[in-house]
């Protein structure tokens, strides 16, 4: 069963003269096991939107159901929330326990699981994020490096075995290697557990590489929704909205300006390489 978002609008300071629609009339169905990328620039409403998915923020109007649980209902919300794991921006700032083990166990403990089940989940989660159990379990989370902290914090959410994992800019502030690690980890987690991943990102390249479907939010509304091919085929439109495009799309835009007719569907390095090779081959003829 999917997450269904219907006509969701969220207004800040509703009723007052300075009310602002953070998001407006959002409709989307998030399917089981899919990798959805959400892009949009700062203040576009993407963070507000994802916080609706597990009931942290309530819609001003519209409905959200997670596997049939109505997230506006207080009791159903608790059950629905267990299915949706939420990793907010800079999750390492929520670490608080004495050891990495205890911190990761916090979520499962709140679910009321017994010792054995908690232990299983902590080990499994640490394995998923690539933190070696022996080395890290008894360390203080504050002794870890930035990237390790980030992974420990994500493990704390994975340990709840969410069916949907929502991440708000999970790679922000990490170096290229750290970014790649997180992205690979998410992809292998999705394949291993068949969970859905909903990832907000600024980096078009990361989204272009991993997402099966992309949602572009602009000024609180869905500007585009579709496969990466669909979305990035209109690279010029994205630039107009003030968004970045994948580096290869940016290159394609420049090439088109200089009179080279690059096909619209090229946004990955391999595709571009093929295309350039094709041109070269023609020139040789």
């Amino acid at each position: 069963m999917p997450i269904e978002v219907k006509n969701v609008t969220h207004t800040y300071m509703a009723g007052s003269s300075i009310s602002v629609n953070a998001i407006e009339n959002i409709n989307i169905t998030i399917n089981d096991g899919e990798f959805l990328g959400i892009i949009g620039h700062t203040g576009s409403g993407k963070s507000t939107f994802i916080q609706h998915l597990n009931g942290l923020v309530q819609p001003t109007s519209g409905t959200i159901t997670v596997d049939g649980y109505d997230m506006r209902d207080k009791k159903q919300k608790v059950l629905g929330r267990r299915l949706v794991g939420m990793v907010l921006q800079y999750p390492e700032y929520q670490l608080f326990e004495e050891t990495v083990y205890k911190d990761i166990a916090y979520g499962p403990k709140n679910m009321g699981l017994d010792e054995k089940a908690i232990d299983d989940r902590v080990r499994e989660a640490m394995d998923h994020v690539g933190l070696e159990f022996k080395k890290f379990a008894d360390k203080s989370p504050f002794e870890l490096s930035g990237g390790e902290k980030r992974r420990a914090a994500i493990a704390g959410v994975i340990a709840m075995r969410p069916k949907y994992l929502v991440l708000d800019e999970p790679m922000a502030g990490l170096d290229p290697k750290g970014r790649k690690n997180i992205l690979n980890m998410l992809e292998s987690l999705r394949q291993a557990t068949n969970c859905s991943i909903i990832m907000v990102s600024h980096s078009m390249d990361d989204v272009a590489r991993s997402a099966q479907r992309i949602m572009v939010i602009n000024e609180g509304k869905i500007a585009k929704l579709g496969s990466p091919e669909d979305v990035f085929s209109d690279a010029e439109g994205l630039v107009e909205m003030g968004l970045d495009v994948p580096r290869i799309s940016a290159l394609a835009i420049e090439m088109r300006k200089r009179g080279i007719d690059v096909p619209k569907n090229i946004f990955k390095a391999e595709q571009m390489l093929e295309f350039i090779k094709g041109i070269k081959a023609q020139e040789r003829k």
Partner: peptide, 13 residues
């Protein structure tokens, strides 16, 4: 607000 939300998402009560 941010930390509260993060811990709520981890099932804090």
């Amino acid at each position: 607000d941010k930390i509260t939300k993060a811990q709520l998402a981890r099932g804090a009560d």
